[in-house]
Amino acid sequence: MRKLFEMEEKELTPQESMALIQSMIGRSRKRYSDNSFFFLLWGWIVLVASVGHYYLSTFTDFEYPFIGWSMTIVGGVISGVVGARRGKTSQVKNYTDKMYGWLWFSLGMAMFTIVFNGQLINWNTVPFILLLAGVGTAVSGAMMGFRPLQFGGFVFWALAFVAFRQPENYQMLLLAFGIAVGYLVPGYIMKANFRNNGV
């Protein structure tokens, strides 16, 4: 390949300067990174935990139907390790990636706070989790220009409306549905996009 800048340093014209600036800025502006790993990881953890919770509390006498949620601790550790490793090895630090990391970290803290204090609100945690997940997916979708995530955000919001009016058991099914539409479907589309055309 021809080395762009190995030619003799010649005087730039204003037009050439402007064209060079535009082309370089265009190169560093990428649409989004492949974050499908995190959506798929959390999508599956929440789907299994919420369906398990519904099943165990409806059809069995098992004392701890919420046992599946302990997987979120493992998920948190995996996310932290993978996220930190990706940040370290990436060759370029984009402002978008930084905002993205902080958005989900903050939402994670908010979700943890709600669940940790769940007893104080009679374990009516799901509607709030749905709302926060909706904020995360809608804003991530807008930052990436990725419509399936933005659509997922609206689904979470609508489900939260319904969930406020349902008992805990049914809330679990709404959460499972929301996570399938809001995390898993966009996650798989994102993964396929990256595999097919690397965008």
């Binding site: 762009l4 800048f5 730039l12 300067s17 060079l20 600036i21 370089m24 800025i25 190169r27 560093s28 502006r29 060759q91 370029v92 630090k93 984009n94 402002y95 930084k98």
Partner: peptide, 13 residues
């Protein structure tokens, strides 16, 4: 100029 244009839109590279 190319380097500066590239760095201006990212945090670090």
């Amino acid at each position: 100029l190319a380097v500066m244009s590239l760095l201006i839109s990212v945090e670090a590279a």
